[in-house]
Computed example of a mutant assay.
Amino acid sequence: MGDDDTPLRRGWTTGTCATAGAKAAAEALFGGAFPDPVTVTLPGGQTPAFALSWTARGADGETGAWAAAGIVKDAGDDPDVTHGALVRARVWRGIPGSGVTFRAGEGVGTVTLPGLPLPVGEPAINPVPRAMIREAVTGVARAAGQPADLVVEIGVENGATLAKRTMNGRLGILGGLSILGTTGIVVPYSCAAWIASIQRGIDVARAAGLIHVAACTGDVSEKAVTARYGFTEQALIDMGDFAGGTLKYLRGHPVGRLTLCGGFAKFGKLARGLMDLHSKRGSVDLDWLAERLAELGATPELIAEARQANTAAQVLGMAEAAGLPLGNRVAELARAAALEVLDRAPVAVEVLVTDRQGNVVGQAKGW
């Protein structure tokens, strides 16, 4: 719901937009007019229609005759980096017997590392969008009495720049964006794309044979763990607030060693067993921190002062001034919470807790 309790508006994935563009281009290629709007079928059976924002036809020595169409992506009320981007599809006839093949147009990346659901060298058009596009253009070809031997090139206007705001570079997807989607629909604030990027990051690290990775809550913690271990980007998992999603995936896709690194306030939540570390999912529990201070032998005065503090960082400062290892205690409890989620998976876990400057203020060793 929004701030006024109105339902958040859903949107469409890049995969859905690419499918709509490809279907319209295929119809034009086989001698018809560009259908506007163009209707596509989603994996769940829904049949949304899309207005065309751009069309073109032509012929060249490489492809022969071609047709192209573009859809402006509407992500609904989701803060998606591709909202408003023009997703283009260009279609031409392929080699007889080749079936439907894919190319990366301008703004769509290419896979360069193993571990993703696509082979190295392939356009970063994910399996479900490929299936949607293949089904759509094959249907058009059959209706025209033509073989479905087609090349489909997908591009995204300004995609290379937009990709810098995603995790694609870390996943080895170079040159642009990925064409994504599993249902064809964007659910606002579901954060599905982020969690999928976490999972693909783990897959890439495993495929590269890495036995030690770090899952971090942000840039500050990434810099701290990199300074300690000299990690490459492929060893760094940007888990953000999704500790639970990261640990659950590692439970079924283990690595030998995992360093969890994050700020004191966020890991104070993890230490309490909270797996979503976003500020909206739970506030800092000053009473809980005060109780941990009591376990460490704090004076009644310090415990009372901690309960009245404004921030977790303030409590940490009080503990440090008193010589009490509160950071270590939070790290130990966060590690215990992580191990519980991992449920005996073969993953050794270390926890590093940082302050706002990136200094390590707590540690729980796992090996």
Rank of each mutant, 00 (worst) to 15 (best):
Ala193Lys: 01
Gly176Asp: 03
Glu233Pro: 12
Thr217Ala: 03
Ile211Leu: 11
Arg206Met: 06
Val186Gln: 05
Arg228Ala: 14
Asp238Phe: 11
Gly218Met: 01
Thr217Cys: 03
Ile237Pro: 00
Ile179Thr: 01
Glu233Gly: 13
Ser197Arg: 09
Tyr189Gln: 08
Leu236Val: 15
Gln234Pro: 01
Asp238Gln: 15
Thr226Val: 15
Ala196Gln: 13
Ala215Asn: 04
Gly184Glu: 12
Ser178Leu: 07
Trp194Glu: 07
Arg200Glu: 15
Gly230Ser: 06
Ala207Pro: 04
Arg206Ser: 12
Gln199Pro: 02
Gly230Ala: 11
Trp194Lys: 11
Ala224Ser: 15
Asp219Glu: 10
Leu177Asp: 05
Ala214Leu: 08
Pro188Arg: 04
Asp203Pro: 05
Cys191Ile: 05
Glu222Leu: 08
Ile195Gly: 04
Gly175Cys: 06
Leu177Thr: 07
Ile179Lys: 00
Gly175Val: 08
Val225Lys: 04
Gly218Ile: 08
Ser178Met: 05
Asp203Asn: 14
Ser190Asp: 06
Gln199Trp: 07
Thr182Cys: 07
Ile179Arg: 01
Arg206Phe: 07
Ala235Tyr: 11
Ile202Cys: 01
Thr217Asn: 01
Asp219Ser: 10
His212Met: 03
Leu236Asn: 10
Ile198Arg: 14
Ala214Pro: 05
Gly209Leu: 05
Lys223Asn: 11
Ala192Lys: 00
Lys223His: 10
Gly184Thr: 11
Leu210Ala: 07
Ile195Asp: 00
His212Ala: 13
Ala227Met: 03
Gly201Ser: 12
Ile179Pro: 00
Ile179Phe: 01
Val213Ser: 08
Asp219Met: 01
Thr226Asp: 01
Ile179Gln: 06
Thr217Arg: 04
Gln199Lys: 11
Leu180Pro: 00
Asp238Glu: 12
Ala205Gln: 09
Leu236Glu: 12
Pro188Ala: 03
Asp219Phe: 03
Asp238Lys: 15
Val187Cys: 08
Val187Ser: 14
Ile198Gly: 12
Ala235Cys: 10
Leu177Pro: 06
Leu210Glu: 02
Gly218Tyr: 02
Ser178Ile: 03
Val204Thr: 14
Ala215Glu: 11
Thr182Ser: 08
Ser190Gln: 02
Thr182Gly: 13
Ile202Ser: 05
Glu233Thr: 10
Arg228Pro: 01
Ala224Asp: 06
Ala235Pro: 12
Pro188Met: 05
Asp203Tyr: 04
Ala215Trp: 09
Val213Lys: 07
Met239Ala: 10
Asp203Val: 05
Pro188Val: 02
Tyr229Thr: 08
Cys216Glu: 14
Leu180Ile: 15
Ile195Cys: 05
Val220Leu: 03
Gly218His: 02
Arg206Asp: 02
Ala196Gly: 10
Gly201Tyr: 09
Ile211Ser: 12
Arg206Lys: 13
Asp238His: 15
Ala208Phe: 09
Val225Ser: 04
Arg206Asn: 09
Cys191Trp: 00
Val220Met: 07
Tyr189Ala: 00
Gly184Val: 03
Ala193Cys: 00
Ile195Arg: 15
Thr182Gln: 13
Gly218Ala: 00
Val186Glu: 01
